[in-house]
Amino acid sequence: MLTAADLRAHLLAARLAGVVGTTREESLRSYRLFAARDPRVLIGLDPEGAWGEREVLALMADRCGVSADPRHISGHDVIDVGRTLAGLDACAERLAAAARRGAAVLLGTGHPHRLLRFYAVLADALSAAGCTVLTPAQGRCVDITTRFGLRTYNLDYVRGVGLVRGAAPQRPGCEPGAHTHSPLPVRTALDAAAAVGGPLPELVIGDHGWVCAAGQLGFEAVGLADVNDPAPFVGQAEGVVSVVVPLDDGVRSGYYLPLTRYVLNRACLSQ
């Protein structure tokens, strides 16, 4: 069984926590954009508080362990490994509660190249425990504004995990799905589920817009977030998002699998 000490060592060695690949410049730029209420950074959240740059930086220092000094403007950012472990423990508690009641759950990711396998293993375990893993609006078109203009994607599910694919056919061997922060995929999924009378999810698990938009609509939402994505942490501070695990969301896909095993062990869902 993977212990907390084992996982701590893995998080630091894989740079999922500690000194991470995300740069300080990236983080500070996101905090400025969030303070300006840029929808690209809000990713479905509608904050109630007056979140200026300093307030966002102070929150991220508290929730993630980044430097609270606004004069620190370059280099690689830092995530406190203890906060990552605490977030994974809290996530495990939510999954265990969902499994006990056989809840309907919805999983989705805006980082399928990195995180699909992480969520897919969770989906398999929750399904085996009696949860209904929802896949509403499969194949539905979703128009998302990107830096290249308006693009049409298709909502799809791989092993129970929602993601979007480009409308054009992918080359054989390519990993599935496109990177997106948009809240539109989960809104599309939830609208479709409501339109047919449910079931609606009792728990949404994911990242980016999947977590923020679901939480904003009143669904219990838990997930992962990097230090250059302040919206989930602001949502957690305002009681909209239940659990956020701070970690680098851009490392190799296989590096996240020990985290999955740890969460499932803590939730007593190991298969």
Score class of each variant (00 low, 15 high):
residue 79 I to M: 00
residue 23 T to H: 01
residue 18 G to K: 06
residue 237 A to V: 03
residue 131 C to V: 10
residue 80 D to H: 13
residue 230 P to E: 01
residue 66 V to Q: 06
residue 42 L to P: 06
residue 48 E to H: 14
residue 171 R to S: 07
residue 186 V to M: 09
residue 105 V to G: 02
residue 211 V to Y: 11
residue 268 C to F: 08
residue 9 A to G: 02
residue 197 G to F: 09
residue 226 D to K: 04
residue 119 Y to C: 02
residue 17 A to H: 00
residue 66 V to G: 03
residue 235 G to I: 08
residue 127 S to E: 15
residue 38 D to Y: 01
residue 89 D to M: 00
residue 1 M to L: 01
residue 147 R to P: 14
residue 24 R to G: 06
residue 21 G to K: 04
residue 50 A to Q: 08
residue 158 V to F: 04
residue 166 G to L: 06
residue 238 E to Y: 11
residue 157 Y to W: 12
residue 87 G to N: 01
residue 37 R to K: 07
residue 80 D to G: 08
residue 221 A to N: 12
residue 19 V to P: 10
residue 28 L to C: 14
residue 75 G to R: 13
residue 173 G to R: 12
residue 252 R to E: 06
residue 210 W to H: 12
residue 176 P to E: 04
residue 262 Y to D: 00
residue 234 V to F: 14
residue 209 G to L: 01
residue 251 V to H: 01
residue 191 D to L: 13
residue 145 T to S: 15
residue 222 V to K: 06
residue 16 L to C: 03
residue 155 L to A: 10
residue 9 A to K: 06
residue 201 P to S: 10
residue 113 H to V: 11
residue 248 D to Q: 01
residue 36 A to Q: 05
residue 223 G to Q: 07
residue 161 V to G: 13
residue 28 L to A: 15
residue 166 G to P: 06
residue 92 A to V: 05
residue 61 A to T: 03
residue 248 D to F: 00
